[in-house]
Every structure is written in structure tokens, then in C-alpha cells.
């Protein structure tokens, strides 16, 4: 993995030395804050006692907001990873350096993943707020954040692949957003297909909503973990092959 650290550090520097990460953090936390406020206001004003905890609702019930968040955060985080290097021509500097394609791909991907994790970090404040006024199940908190992490890791891997496929950052952004949208539409088929059919089973397997409902209930279903792990590893492997293949283009 020679070359990993300098590339990883440089990617982080680019994220935080430019307005990108800060603008994303502002937008992300504003939407999350409004989301959390609306949820609490809704629960507080409801005459009936909900059978769901605020955290379950935050991470599970209102999952459609996660697609907004993914669309907002993931394409901008990944669009420049390879498309910018190819557009600028700086990819020549990297390909002529004594580093492996795997180090190149993982350094860029993990820098984006760390930035994604850091974006979520301030939302722990909401857990603190709820814990001050009521009971918070630590297991639910842990599995909820695990779900957010796994889904983000997979979609970031897809975004990394999209960035390696095209020279234009804008095209990479559109392509990544399109794939995320496909996940969303695929998940909707859970409601449009009959239970017990193959289509329903496939839609359920792909549905981020279904996955997050489990994670936000404190359930770690190994099928979900395998799904997200596969959806992370396969795109990263393909990206590594693409980077290696540029020598033969």
C-alpha cells in the first residue's frame, strides 16, 4: 500500500482547505437540524404516545430524508476524486509515481468516507439532547449509526467508481446521483410488489428504508451487512481495475 498516507492526507487537505467540506457541512447539518426539530415538534404535539422512540423515528421512519442527504452529500464528495485528476492531467503525476492502484483508490475513498463520518459526528448532539430528557438505548444508537455508516460507505464506493468512469466532475456528480436515485426507486418497489414474490424479495433486499428500519430498531441483520459490504467492495475493486487499465487506454 505504498503511497497511501500522502495521498490520503492530500485528499483530506483538499476537502478542508477548499470550501467544499464546509459548505457540505453547513447544508447537511442545517437539514439534519430542521429534521430533528420537526420530528421533536411532531412528537411533542401529538396527542397519542408514539410506539417509536425519537431516535427510531429519526433514523428509520423518516428515511426518505436520508436520500436527500445522500443526494446532497455523496455526489459532491466523490465527483472530483478521479475526474478532477484526469481533467487536470495530474493523474500522470500519480501514475508515474511509485504507488499501487489500490493505494490510489483506497486513499481517495477513505478520505471521502472519513469526511462523511465527520459530517455525521455533530448529530450525536441530538442523542445527547434526548438522553437529557428521556431514555436512550445505546444499542439502538450504535446500530443506527452503523446503518448510516454502511449505507454511506457503499454509496461513496459507487461514487468513487463513477468518478473514475468519466473525465468531467459534473458528469460524475450526475452519474452518482442517478445511482442513488435508482436505490431509492428500487426501494419503493417494496410497497408496489406483493409479499412473497421474487420482485418483493429483491426490492426488500435493496431497500435502504427496510435496512434502516432494522438498524434503527437495534437489529443487525447479517444480510444487510453483507449487502453493504458487497456494495462497497465490488465498486472499489472495479475502480482499482479501471485505474490500472488506464495504462492501456
Amino acid at each position: 500500500m505504498r503511497g497511501f498516507w500522502p495521498l490520503f492526507k492530500r485528499e483530506l487537505l483538499v476537502f478542508y482547505a477548499t470550501p467544499l467540506a464546509w459548505v457540505l457541512a453547513f447544508a447537511f447539518l442545517t437539514v439534519q437540524g430542521l429534521h430533528f426539530y420537526a420530528l421533536l415538534a411532531s412528537i411533542a404535539s401529538s396527542p397519542e404516545v408514539s410506539d417509536q422512540s425519537p431516535l427510531q423515528a429519526f433514523f428509520g421512519e423518516t428515511v426518505i430524508l436520508y436520500f436527500v442527504q445522500f443526494m446532497l452529500v455523496i455526489p459532491p464528495l466523490t465527483m472530483r476524486l478521479f475526474a478532477e485528476e484526469r481533467g487536470r492531467g495530474t493523474i500522470e503525476l500519480l501514475l508515474s509515481a511509485p504507488i499501487t492502484p489500490l493505494a490510489l483508490v483506497l486513499s481517495k475513498y477513505l478520505a471521502a468516507l472519513l469526511t462523511y463520518v465527520l459530517l455525521w459526528f455533530p448529530t450525536l448532539f441530538y442523542v445527547f439532547v434526548i438522553a437529557r430528557t428521556g431514555y436512550v438505548d445505546p444499542a439502538v444508537v450504535a446500530t443506527s449509526y452503523l446503518g448510516v455508516f454502511l449505507a454511506g460507505a457503499a454509496l461513496l464506493a459507487v461514487g468513487t467508481l463513477c468518478s473514475a468512469l468519466v473525465r468531467s466532475q459534473f458528469l460524475a456528480l450526475i452519474l452518482t446521483a442517478f445511482v442513488i436515485l435508482l436505490f431509492f426507486v428500487g426501494g419503493l418497489f417494496t410497497f408496489l410488489t406483493k409479499d412473497g414474490t421474487v420482485a418483493h424479495a429483491v426490492a426488500t433486499h435493496l431497500s435502504l428504508w427496510t435496512h434502516m428500519m432494522d438498524f434503527s430498531s437495534g437489529i443487525i441483520d447479517s444480510r444487510h451487512v453483507v449487502f453493504y459490504s458487497s456494495a462497497t467492495i465490488v465498486p472499489l475493486y472495479v475502480t482499482t481495475r479501471i485505474v490500472d487499465g488506464w495504462r492501456w487506454a
Binding site: 505504498r2 503511497g3 498516507w5 500522502p6 495521498l7 492526507k9 492530500r10 483538499v14 482547505a17 477548499t18 487536470r88 492531467g89 495530474t90 493523474i91 500522470e92 503525476l93 500519480l94 508515474s96 509515481a97 511509485p98 504507488i99
Partner: peptide, 28 residues
Amino acid sequence: LGYLPEAVPLYPELRVVEYLAFRAELKG
């Protein structure tokens, strides 16, 4: 090897020393 490509691609956002530090570390 040290390679200077024809188009001299560089990272414009970096200072010269930062760029060279990055490249030196990358080259081991």
C-alpha cells in the same frame, strides 16, 4: 525516475513547498 510531463500538471491550490513535500513523501 523523475518525470516532467509536457503539460506540467500541478495542483494550483498548493504552495510550492507543500506540493514538493507531498511529492517527496509520495515518492518514498
